[in-house]
Design a protein around this nucleic acid. Structure first.
Lengths: 192, 192
DNA sequence: GAGCCAAGTCAACGGTTGGTGACTTATAAG
DNA sequence: CTTATAAGTCACCAACCGTTGACTTGGCTC
């Protein structure tokens, strides 16, 4: 997803360029976190000069905010169906494939950006106002805040565990067992 | 824990200085992660010049390795008692007090250093060879690797959740409910 | 085609980082 | 007291970061 074409000159379109930068930033932030992803890397991925990012988004903070704002909207495939099968769906999304992992990008960004106070503050505000609120509305029931928080912790932990200690070394049988157990645990975490 | 005394000159002792640096590094890494903690900050905390760290430990990597190696040894209070009450003890340690949190420092370091590939690799190797192995020995039973991994993910997720979205806003009642639920979930995660 | 303005590039700044080598100083042996 | 050596400090380097301002270039209107 680069703007530079194979042959010669490129089309100048502010909207497309902005969207391309945003997409590159999302991928970088989800793979390296706020501090780890540099504007120059993001710009190189998008095929533009780094100065253009500051021009379009003002600062790295604001670019990050916009990315988080987009990533914080809960995927309806996961947070929209029957709550009774939520654990199953979530465990599947967390463990099966999804290298590009758009659905779980938010958790990865939260996770890998936790070490930066500024990024943490942005993520905190955005996840509280956007993600948790919708999640709680969808989930409902007693102690909904406790249950929401617990299941979110679980999902983040699973993402972290996947990043740090990748599941590649598990064979198919163990991964299936892990997935089943994870599904049961997530289901328990949201059970009223 | 600074080496500089109030009045005048300081005692020169390599062993003590080394230990002081190591302790400062542990705290910094547990609060800011590998990338976030700078050698100059660590040195300032210890009350020495930053150059001394490179002299004693060679590089930031090696300092980090040594810190992780120490932090990776499972606390016998948590991973030594009756497995039947493990969830309870763990949930208590994760949620109650423990600002200085020595027992959970390892999880914090793993968490906040996940964005650095080098640090991740160090943490991965150390936790696999030291932590997981002892944890599995203590836990035992069928599918011990799956259960170990699952509960570790849970604990990391809870640490992360605590860092990102601190529990200060929860009153005592909700925190108690959260703790009870967390205990039950952790217990389920290690159940054979 | 001329001209204007946004889109994009370039070079540079100040700041911070990890790391290195020369230097100073305290401490203990003689 | 002298002195050798380890302990500690200082100045400095190259690399990278986010950000800025001046500059160039493309695309549209007239």
């Amino acid at each position: 997803m680069t703007l530079t074409e194979s042959a010669g000159h490129r089309v100048r379109n502010a909207a497309i360029t902005r969207a391309t930068i945003l997409e590159s930033a999302r991928k970088r932030f989800a793979r390296e976190g706020y501090d780890g992803a540099s504007l120059r890397e993001i710009a190189a991925d998008a095929g533009v000069d780094a100065a253009l990012i500051s021009r379009y988004f003002g600062s790295k903070d604001e670019l990050f905010s916009e990315v988080v704002m987009l990533a914080c909207q809960p995927d309806p495939d996961l947070f929209g169906g029957d709550p009774a099968t939520f654990g199953e769906r979530m465990a599947k999304a967390a463990l099966e494939g999804e290298q590009d992992g758009e659905k779980l990008d938010m958790f990865l960004i939260m996770l890998l950006s936790a070490s930066s106070p500024k990024a943490s503050e942005i993520v905190r505000r955005c996840s509280r106002d956007q993600f948790y609120q919708r999640f709680e509305e969808w989930l409902g029931g007693p102690d909904v805040d406790v249950r929401t928080r617990l299941s979110a912790s679980l999902m983040m932990g699973m993402s972290l565990s996947r990043v740090i200690d990748d599941t590649k070394e598990f064979d198919a049988v163990r991964r299936a067992k892990l997935q089943d157990r994870l599904a049961a645990i997530i289901q328990l975490s949201i059970a009223p």
